[in-house]
């Protein structure tokens, strides 16, 4: 998948994955895609909810060896 920015949030605990995602997203423009990797298990629901409340779109989400990966398109 085409990614405009990559954020490594592995090893960070709540609420840091969300804070870092917000900051990374602020640097993108509408339509660009942010790829986030996180290991905080809460991030699965948190990032999904964050994407929804911000009017963005979660294009894809997968899990690989305890790493949660998200592709978020900025709204």
């Amino acid at each position: 998948m085409n990614t405009d920015k990559f954020l490594d949030a592995k090893g960070l605990a709540c609420p840091m994955p969300i804070v870092r995602t917000k900051k990374a997203m602020d640097e993108l423009s509408s339509g660009q895609v942010l790829e986030v990797h996180a290991t905080d298990k809460g991030a699965k629901n948190d990032i999904t909810a964050w994407v929804q409340s911000g009017g963005h779109e979660l294009l894809k989400q997968e899990e690989e060896n305890d790493v949660l990966k998200f592709w978020i398109q900025k709204g």
């Binding site: 709540c14 969300i18 804070v19 964050w50 409340s53």
Partner: peptide, 11 residues
């Protein structure tokens, strides 16, 4: 601070 920070990061 967790709730406050998470809320602020959610605009």
């Amino acid at each position: 601070f967790n709730i406050a920070t998470a809320a602020a990061a959610t605009e």
